[in-house]
Design a protein around this nucleic acid. Structure first.
Lengths: 210, 210
DNA sequence: AATAAATTGTGATAAATTTCACATTAAACA
DNA sequence: TGTTTAATGTGAAATTTATCACAATTTATT
């Protein structure tokens, strides 16, 4: 029913709504949300329609109400806890990324094979990889982030699956196969930058071509 | 003509091809690339067809040749240099992210308003934000990464535009408007994780629903 | 109370993207 | 050398996603 684009937009609407709420706004129009997410107003309303979210004809939407509804859809009625495997550059950064808090996302532990990185006392402890299974089971963790080198990505996936992880964001630049019973999203920074390079060069060509 | 999905797939094919080449493979079939990028073989051939890439009927594609062709499309015939504005968690991680090298991507400098972060001597220097314009102009930089808090994202965009940056990856969880003469891609980590949460919860519901 | 104006909500339409079906070609084999 | 087989390449069909057009409704105005 709802596609990935739609869910990404819902996240964006929500972010905008939280900001509006912080500024004490009460009502919002589809046009406003469209601006904030860089889409059309019809798209916003279509997205809402898909989830049975309705506003007041002529009167827009109540921000509080809208946040509550979108939050429920996105599973934000409770804090969602993640573990990270691979405490390198990216893993370390995500471990303490301040933006997660307002999204009801919590990184509860990191795991690595490198002894030097282990630290049980830290606010977000970094533990030996061997403890992943136990930790996930004991703490009922459902989500994980893979930020290991690509050569280790596949086996990290296996470990996470065995541990019972149900949703994974993979930063390794290798496209992991989505297994049964687990959602995997592959996000490679290289690929993102390459994408920008391509479309920038293309735009420049079009400009000079005209 | 080519859409974003297509370019992302080309990056993925290329990554897989580089690995195959490192293993001394010579030929590859659309089926192989499809596996590596988690798409269908027809999709691979359609993508190639779009760019006039052709192989040998019955004989697949020559890896070397394919890498060269895709690299040219993705602008990898030369190293592409990026600056990063905002040396916080994410910015710091990207500054030294080892995966960029093999993708012909180089981070040449970081910029921040915080004096304590400045370091001209570092391999990748971290400079005062005021120097962004000069640096970009002098070094003919075309690409930038925004990793500042969302409250500073919009003005950072303005600075980059004034400096002459033509392609931007924005990590701030605010959707920046794509200006004239500049490509902007908004990538928010929160949003990516929310996306995974949604589809994981959905899959679980479907499972129990059945 | 009647009319005008502004906004939502959605079926119908259009556009974009992917998949299908199959013609074409090259290699392998008999 | 002819036949079979296994791949590519691509127009057409199907599917997915976004846009359009406009009815429905609410609020504001006269």
């Amino acid at each position: 029913m709802a596609n990935k684009g739609c869910i990404i937009r819902l996240s964006r609407y929500r972010n905008a709504l939280l900001r509006l709420k912080a500024l004490n706004f009460v009502k919002v129009f589809s046009e406003n949300l469209a601006d904030s997410a860089r889409v059309t107003a019809v798209q916003v309303r279509k997205d809402f329609s898909l989830f049975g979210i309705s506003g007041n004809r002529r009167g827009g939407y109540l921000i509080e109400e809208l946040i509550a509804k979108i939050s429920a859809i996105l599973g934000k009625d409770e804090v969602q806890r993640f573990v990270i495997v691979g405490i390198g550059n990216i893993g370390q950064a995500l471990l303490h990324y301040p933006g997660f808090k307002k999204s009801e996302i919590e990184i509860v532990a990191g795991f690595d094979i490198d002894q030097n990185k282990h630290n049980r006392q830290a606010a977000v402890p970094i533990l030996p990889l061997e403890e992943l299974g136990n930790f996930v089971e004991k703490n009922k963790i459902r989500f994980g982030i893979i930020s290991v080198p690509d050569s280790a990505a596949q086996e990290t996936l296996q470990l996470m699956l065995q541990a019972g992880i149900k949703g994974i964001l993979n930063f390794a630049p290798i496209c992991l196969k989505e297994p049964q019973n687990c959602v995997v999203r592959n996000l490679s920074l290289e690929t993102e930058l390459e994408n920008i390079i391509y479309f920038t060069v293309l735009a420049e060509k079009e400009e000079t071509g005209k």
